[in-house]
Design a protein around this nucleic acid. Structure first.
Length: 448
RNA sequence: GGCGCAUUCGUCUAGUGGCCUAGGACGCCGCCCUCUCACGGCGGUAGCACGGGUUCGAAUCCCGUAUGCGCCUCCA
């Protein structure tokens, strides 16, 4: 498949003396990309957005998507974080190629490379640390696949600390070294790394390593305009999962942040995304995460499921969350809520009355004792006890009492479901069954 | 402060000089449907940050300003 759009011209260095830098080695397919989170907690939504774009690029181009855990900062490492990150990626279906690598495992190699640079005169020791010389003049530039030409004057680039006095390599050294070791051809990451790029290019240059292509995505911010990250208390993939979001919907939404296919299409399956994704259509500006839109998409996805798929998804979620409700009943309740709730997480509050006795707010029942008693007697002998007949008899009851349907049904709804908001009343009554329905009507009517 | 990046409805975006009196979606508002809540249908609201250029013509190109963000750590 030919690659449309931008010419595959590579990153280049340009100095004042006009000396060209390393030519790009990687304009050929297949590309190798990576996602390199640090294991400091759950995978946050900004991180997974970056992971998704890397994954999409790799899958679209038939390349490889690698996972690298950047765990050199052991002081900030959180136990289990790596496993949690992988679990989140699995949940979203972002599969990686090859073994997961850990930055810590390659500290020695990084140190050796730094020492080599010292031996070659490209770096020097400074109070126990190793610093790499940065050019004093000229500039460093590259053709960013998302932003185009970026050029940074070298004057103020301080000599980069590659290895700390305690022997640990720094991020700006270890990261490019590992990209080189892994044969990474395209570095796709957040825009907060733009300023690091010239340093990393110079590191690679000193190492004699080929330069990857760079693509800097816009960051994702919260509705308050603050950067959406775990540091700012934002949101993790785990939280979305717990809240009952459907993975394909979340993936679809994330893809729409900074990428678009055309001026109107916005529903994309995972396969659609892989087929249609190109870096060329990725935008450079930051985006605000819109929970309303995510909810809308999630509802769309959930409603589009077949009743069986929906019930399965609901059951799986309930199990994950530790609910031990009768599965047969959940399956029967599922179709009653599918059109009504936007996330699986709303189910317990919305349909929990099927599984537990309710205690309606007395205010909702105020003065309706006689009506409830009447409803009870109408339903007591109904045969068969199905929603159609329940509806028919209750409508007759309303008419007899001279009540508008909603006036008659709201107290009954409150008595039976415990709330003024519920799935369809008649279907709910049928599912609850005669005995349970009568008991709830009695309990509610008895209060007066 | 220096350097860098960004800037189209409240939000996500389409738009690469004339097809734009700027399109779609979410949200919001109204109407319809209706046993509640939703769904759905119909209609509406709202935007090219500002100022200069270039051009017959600019949301689109150039310059400046403003604002936001990032980096300037022996953090990642």
């Amino acid at each position: 498949m030919p690659r449309p759009g931008r010419s595959p011209c590579g990153s280049r260095l340009r100095s004042k003396d006009g000396r060209p830098g390393s030519p790009d080695y990687h304009s050929r397919v297949p590309p190798v990309v990576r996602f390199a989170p640090s294991p400091t907690g759950f995978l946050h939504i900004g991180g997974v957005h970056t992971a998704l774009f890397n994954w999409l690029y790799a899958r679209h181009e038939g390349g490889e998507f690698r996972l690298r855990i950047e765990n050199t900062d052991t002081s900030r490492e959180v136990a289990e974080a790596s496993e949690q990150i992988m679990e989140s990626l699995r949940w979203l279906g972002l599969d990686w190629d090859g073994e997961v690598t850990y930055q810590l495992d390659r500290m020695e190699r990084c140190k050796e490379e730094a020492e080599r640079l010292v031996a070659e005169g490209k770096a020097y020791e400074d109070e126990g640390a190793i610093r790499i010389r940065m050019p004093d003049e000229g500039s460093t530039s590259w053709e960013d696949l998302v932003r185009g030409h970026i050029e940074v004057p070298s004057e103020k680039l301080e000599d980069l600390v590659a290895v700390r006095a305690d022997g640990r390599p720094t991020y700006n050294f270890a990261s490019p070294v590992e990209d080189w070791l892994d044969g990474i051809t395209h570095v796709i990451r957040g825009e907060d790394h733009i300023s690091n790029t010239p340093k990393q290019i110079r590191v690679l240059e000193a190492l004699g390593a080929p330069l990857p292509e760079y693509a800097h995505l816009g960051n994702i911010y919260g509705p308050d305009g603050k950067k959406l990250s775990k540091r700012h208390g934002a949101v993790s993939v785990e939280e979305f999962r717990t809240a009952g979001y459907y993975a394909p919907a979340l993936l679809n939404y994330l893809a729409l942040l900074g990428w678009s296919y055309d001026d109107r299409t916005e529903i994309f399956s995972r396969d659609d995304l892989v087929r249609l994704f190109t870096l060329e259509r990725v935008g450079a500006s930051p985006a605000v995460f819109d929970y309303d839109k995510l909810n809308h998409l999630n509802g769309l996805y959930l409603r589009a499921l077949s009743p069986e798929e929906y019930a399965d998804a609901l059951l799986a979620w309930l199990r994950e969350q530790g609910y031990e409700w009768d599965e047969g009943l959940v399956k029967k309740a599922a179709p009653l809520v599918q059109e009504k709730i936007g996330t699986l997480g709303e189910f317990p509050a919305f349909a929990g009355f099927f599984f537990d006795r309710v205690a309606p707010d007395p205010a909702l029942l105020d003065g309706s004792g006689p009506l409830l008693a009447e409803a009870r007697s109408v339903l007591a002998d109904l045969e068969p006890f199905d929603s159609e007949r329940v509806e028919g008899s209750l409508r007759e009851l309303a008419e007899r009492q001279g009540l508008k349907p909603r006036q008659a049904f709201q107290p009954i709804r409150a008595a039976v479901t415990g709330s003024k908001i519920s799935p369809g009343l008649f279907e709910s009554i049928e599912l609850l069954g005669r005995e349970e329905t009568l008991a709830r009507l009695d309990a509610a009517a008895g209060g007066f």
